[in-house]
Structure formats: C-alpha cells, structure tokens
Computed example of a mutant assay.
Amino acid sequence: MKAHIEERAIIIAKYILEKESTVRETAKTFGVSKSTVHKDVTERLSSINPSLAKKVKRILDKNKSERHIRGGMATKLKYKNNGKNVG
C-alpha cells in the first residue's frame, strides 16, 4: 500500500476519534469521498493499526446508531427554515 494512503488513513482515524465526527463530516473536511473515508478506516486501518481501528469502529458504530435522530432533526430544521410547521 502506498505510504500517503496509509498516512491519510491514520490522520482521518485520529480526526474521527478527536471530533467524534461522522464519515460524511470527515469526508467534507478532508475533501475526499465518503467511500474513501469508510474504506480507509474500516479496511486499510485494520492492517496498519488494529488498536486505532477498533477505537474508530466504536465511534462509527455509535454514529450509525444515532443517525436516525440526526436525520429527524435535519428534517425538522428544513421545514422550520421553510416557514412550515412541523409537529
């Protein structure tokens, strides 16, 4: 694996741990696709730094379990900002 890809995977993983960031937020911050972030921290990182990969997996699992809440809040804000009344 190329050194810059390994380095990017570690940097992204540390960012996710520090900020408890979602894959989408992280991708936007680093200017890469969500697929790249996901592949870096789930596949590549496990062979580079398994202990870091486990820590990041916990954050990603937490984010995944909470995504329905964030989606609901985003929808609520969308309709609130459009002047529509949401429940």
Score class of each variant (00 low, 15 high):
1 M>R: 08
4 H>Q: 02
4 H>V: 10
6 E>A: 11
7 E>C: 06
7 E>Y: 09
8 R>Q: 13
8 R>K: 13
9 A>K: 07
9 A>Q: 09
9 A>P: 09
10 I>S: 01
11 I>W: 01
12 I>C: 05
12 I>Y: 00
13 A>K: 02
13 A>V: 10
13 A>N: 09
15 Y>N: 03
16 I>G: 03
16 I>T: 05
17 L>E: 13
17 L>W: 06
18 E>T: 07
18 E>C: 07
19 K>M: 13
19 K>V: 13
20 E>D: 13
21 S>E: 07
21 S>L: 03
21 S>W: 01
22 T>R: 05
22 T>F: 02
22 T>V: 08
24 R>C: 00
24 R>N: 05
24 R>W: 00
25 E>C: 03
25 E>Q: 14
25 E>S: 14
26 T>R: 01
27 A>Q: 04
27 A>G: 02
27 A>D: 04
27 A>P: 06
27 A>E: 01
27 A>K: 01
28 K>R: 13
28 K>L: 12
28 K>D: 06
28 K>P: 02
29 T>V: 14
29 T>K: 15
29 T>Y: 12
30 F>S: 04
30 F>M: 05
31 G>Q: 09
31 G>P: 12
31 G>H: 07
32 V>N: 07
32 V>H: 05
33 S>F: 04
33 S>L: 06
33 S>D: 11
33 S>C: 05
35 S>C: 06
35 S>H: 06
36 T>H: 03
36 T>E: 08
36 T>W: 02
40 D>E: 10
40 D>L: 00
41 V>D: 00
42 T>F: 04
42 T>Q: 10
43 E>F: 00
44 R>Y: 14
44 R>F: 11
45 L>A: 09
46 S>D: 10
46 S>W: 08
48 I>K: 04
48 I>R: 03
48 I>L: 15
49 N>T: 04
49 N>A: 14
50 P>M: 02
51 S>A: 13
52 L>H: 10
52 L>W: 11
53 A>Y: 06
54 K>S: 14
54 K>C: 06
54 K>G: 04
55 K>V: 02
57 K>C: 08
57 K>H: 07
58 R>Y: 07
58 R>D: 10
59 I>A: 03
59 I>F: 02
60 L>V: 05
60 L>G: 01
62 K>Q: 08
62 K>C: 02
63 N>S: 12
64 K>W: 06
64 K>V: 05
64 K>D: 12
65 S>K: 15
65 S>T: 15
66 E>L: 15
66 E>Y: 12
66 E>K: 15
67 R>P: 04
68 H>P: 04
69 I>D: 05
69 I>Q: 09
69 I>A: 07
69 I>Y: 12
70 R>A: 10
70 R>P: 02
71 G>L: 11
71 G>D: 13
71 G>N: 13
72 G>N: 11
73 M>C: 08
73 M>N: 10
73 M>T: 13
74 A>Y: 06
74 A>N: 12
75 T>S: 02
75 T>D: 08
76 K>C: 03
76 K>Y: 13
77 L>A: 12
77 L>I: 12
79 Y>R: 11
79 Y>L: 14
80 K>H: 10
81 N>G: 14
82 N>D: 08
82 N>E: 13
82 N>V: 02
83 G>E: 07
83 G>Q: 01
83 G>C: 03
83 G>Y: 02
83 G>N: 07
85 N>K: 15
86 V>D: 03
86 V>N: 00
87 G>A: 10
